[in-house]
Simulated assay, not measured.
Amino acid sequence: MSLDPESGRPLYAQLADVLEARIASGEYAPDRMIPTPASLADEYGIAQMTARRTMRELRERGLIYTVPGKGSYVLPAGPENAEAEGNNPGEK
């Protein structure tokens, strides 16, 4: 899927939707690294800052986590990632 630079929707949000669909389809498996911002920038012809904003969007959506110095990984589905979604799993 390509991005539409003519759209009023920000490119980072469009790319986040593309990556979210890839995660949902299983193309990017849980606990596996997703492409780096640099590779996404090359693949989609966007600025690296836009690609980094996409990663932040995916973290905010609770879909990925980032390990400094290593990369970003797909969060497993289920209650074990509730903390990443802003919930405290220890609270009942």
Rank of each mutant, 00 (worst) to 15 (best):
R52C: 12
R52F: 13
A16T: 00
L19R: 08
I23E: 01
P30D: 08
R52T: 09
E43L: 12
T54R: 04
S39Q: 03
G69S: 14
Y44F: 13
R52D: 13
E60Q: 07
Y44L: 06
P35A: 07
S72E: 00
M55F: 08
V18Q: 08
Y65G: 13
I34C: 06
L11Q: 04
D42R: 13
D42Y: 14
L58D: 00
V67L: 15
T54G: 06
R53Y: 14
R53I: 06
G69K: 14
T54F: 01
T66D: 11
I64C: 06
V67A: 15
L19Y: 09
Y44C: 04
G71Y: 08
V67M: 15
T36R: 07
R32T: 14
I64W: 06
S39E: 03
K70H: 15
E20F: 00
E43V: 12
E60H: 08
Y73F: 15
T54A: 05
R53G: 10
G45R: 05
T66C: 11
M49W: 09
P37G: 05
G45Q: 07
M49L: 12
T36N: 10
L11S: 07
L19Q: 05
L63H: 00
P10F: 12
P30T: 04
T50H: 09
D17P: 03
P30C: 09
Q14L: 10
G26I: 10
D17G: 04
A16M: 00
T54H: 02
K70P: 15
G69M: 14
M49V: 11
D17E: 01
A38F: 12
E57G: 09
R59N: 07
D17R: 02
I23A: 02
S72M: 01
L63N: 00
A24I: 12
A29D: 14
Y65C: 15
L63G: 00
M33N: 04
V18E: 07
P37M: 05
